[in-house]
Design a binder for these strands. Structure first.
Length: 483
RNA sequence: GGCGCUGUAGCCAAGUGGCUCAAGGCGAAGGUCUGCAAAACCUUUAUUCGUCGGUUCGAAUCCGACCGGCGCCUCCA
């Protein structure tokens, strides 16, 4: 039984989809005004793991991630870069797709863009206006929060307390300082669309109401996003959608904890800002994913070189085993023994962990336990039947590869990519072998060391010598932490 | 001020009443294997869970107080 912590109720609840086995899930995507940063990456990756796990459980997931492609920040960027806002959005949209692919994030079923849904947005605003939830002041349309009695139910805020806070910007035009824009009147030079209220563009929150409704319906199962979106963004989405449809908007709200650098929020002004793109120049996507999966999605995560380096090391174990499995499957030994391993137990434990509000750290622990036990069986037995390796592969395919995305079996076989390179390395291995027979260890060690220097690591075993590619670098991206 | 998250070994991090008087990863120490390595395996590495009280047969886990870190309350994931 899967349970999920629901921000709306502040409790862990049993997950009951509206229409099983279908699950409808919406995740707030990027505003495409820049490369996304490693904090965004955490949200995207954890949402991806949740989606993959739902699929592992047999659900048919319809997964939607929006792109906000019209917004103040995009306009600002277009002014500073002196080019059309649409070009800015297109460029960074393209970069977004490149980056999520590198991060091994499964594509959404649809990536709706705000600018392709202007009609739907206008329709909702019209409906809100008709129902008395919205008012137009000179081409700016605002949502009147006082008309929605449940306003604040997601974030636990109360309208009067918010109003007493000093941090709310007072806009003379609004009836209430908390009212937010549904439609913004276009200023000179800004992108605009025609609407019943004149030329303008949608407010930020309304696009998610419009696009989720179009692609998932008026009520859907899961809505996820970063912690900071709880208020005001998701609160406002609820107010808009539920006022317009009269129905419950979302059953389960999932929010991701923040990623900090040196225990501080990442921000450009603090100079501790890293794009996912930059991180991926140094660390593998799998290491990033493992590092994130080893912390529960809802808690804070302190990002550091040490964290990623340690994940990269942990990943080695997994990759080494995967390579071993692929070799053995090629050898295809149909006799030999089949070590007894309780595969069902690991699967049960993995599922039990993930069922408990997507406890991926626990799930990782199950996988590492599994790796250790498999390696032990391999160390204790010779001549193992291929059936054993096939079972091991099956488990890792479903869990490490399928759910966590920290393994790629299609890359686990290094021996056969590039025939020439392979042949040359095999030749050197033979020469080294001959040197060893002559006890010319100076030469054999030199061959091994020099190969290692160019990124090829040799490993001797009873059955012969194998090699694998290793990374040579050791670069720090983060400034050293203060002591 | 309001709402929320958080304090577990050298570092990261699960566990939220008894099977766990504490998973897993990294690091460290010793060992097996090896010509030496590497990989892999084995052993060791928190009598203790921010502090102090309380509830209970029993608490890291519940309650209270205190100390500390962080976030949101501003179109930041």
């Amino acid at each position: 039984m899967l349970s999920i912590y629901n921000t709306l109720t502040r409790t862990k609840e049993e997950f009951k989809p509206i229409n099983p086995p279908n699950v409808k899930m919406y995740v707030c995507g990027p505003t495409v005004y820049d490369y996304f940063h490693i904090g965004n990456a955490r949200s995207f990756i954890m949402a991806d793991i949740i989606r993959r796990y739902l699929e592992f459980k047999g659900y048919e997931v319809k997964y939607i991630m929006n792109l906000t492609d019209v917004d103040d920040r995009i306009i600002k960027k277009s002014i500073s870069e002196k080019r059309d806002a649409k070009l800015v959005a297109d460029d960074y949209s393209k970069a977004f797709f490149e980056d999520i692919q590198k991060l091994k994030i499964k594509p959404a079923d649809v990536y709706p863009k705000a600018t392709n849904h202007i009609e739907e947005i206008i329709d909702i605003i019209k409906k809100l206006e008709e129902k008395g939830f919205a008012y137009n002041i000179d081409g700016n349309v605002f949502y009147n929060v006082n008309k929605f009695p449940e306003y604040g139910k997601l974030s636990g805020k109360k309208i009067d307390e918010l109003e007493s806070g000093a941090r709310i910007e007072i806009n003379e035009e609004k009836k209430d300082p908390l009212d937010f824009a549904l439609w913004k009147k276009a200023k000179v030079g800004e992108p605009y669309w025609e609407s019943p209220w004149g030329k303008g563009r949608p407010g930020w929150h309304i696009e998610c109401s419009a696009m989720s409704c179009k692609h998932l319906g008026e009520t859907f199962d899961i809505h996820a996003g970063g912690n900071d979106l709880i208020f005001p963004h998701h609160e406002n989405e609820i107010a808009q959608s539920e006022a317009a449809t009269g129905k419950k908007f979302v059953n389960y709200w999932v929010h991701f904890g923040f990623l900090n650098i040196n225990n501080e929020k990442m921000s450009k002004s603090l100079g501790n800002f890293f794009t996912a793109r930059d991180i991926l120049k140094i660390y593998s996507a799998e290491a990033v994913r493992l590092a994130f999966a080893q912390t529960h999605y809802a808690g804070p995560l302190n990002f550091s070189d040490e964290l990623l380096a340690s994940a990269e090391k942990g990943l080695e174990k997994l990759k080494n085993l995967a390579e071993k499995i692929e070799e053995e499957i090629k050898i295809n030994r149909v006799d030999g023994i089949i070590p007894q391993l309780e595969f069902e137990k690991y699967k049960t434990n993995f599922e039990a962990a993930m069922d408990e509000d997507f406890n991926s750290p626990q799930a990782c622990a199950v996988i590492f336990d599994f790796i250790r036990d498999v390696n032990r069986a391999i160390a204790e037995n010779e001549n193992i039947n291929i059936k054993f390796y096939l079972s091991v592969k099956e488990f890792l395919r479903k869990t490490a590869e399928g759910v966590l995305g920290i393994l790629d079996f299609s890359k686990a076989s290094t021996q056969n990519d590039g025939a020439l390179e392979n042949d040359l390395i095999e030749l050197l291995i033979k020469l080294r072998h001959d040197a060893k027979l002559e006890k010319n260890y100076a030469l054999s060690d030199r061959i091994r060391n020099e190969l290692k220097n160019i990124g090829i690591e040799l490993q001797d075993s009873k059955s012969g010598t194998t090699y694998k590619k290793i990374k040579i670098k050791n670069v720090n991206i983060l400034p050293p932490g203060e002591e």
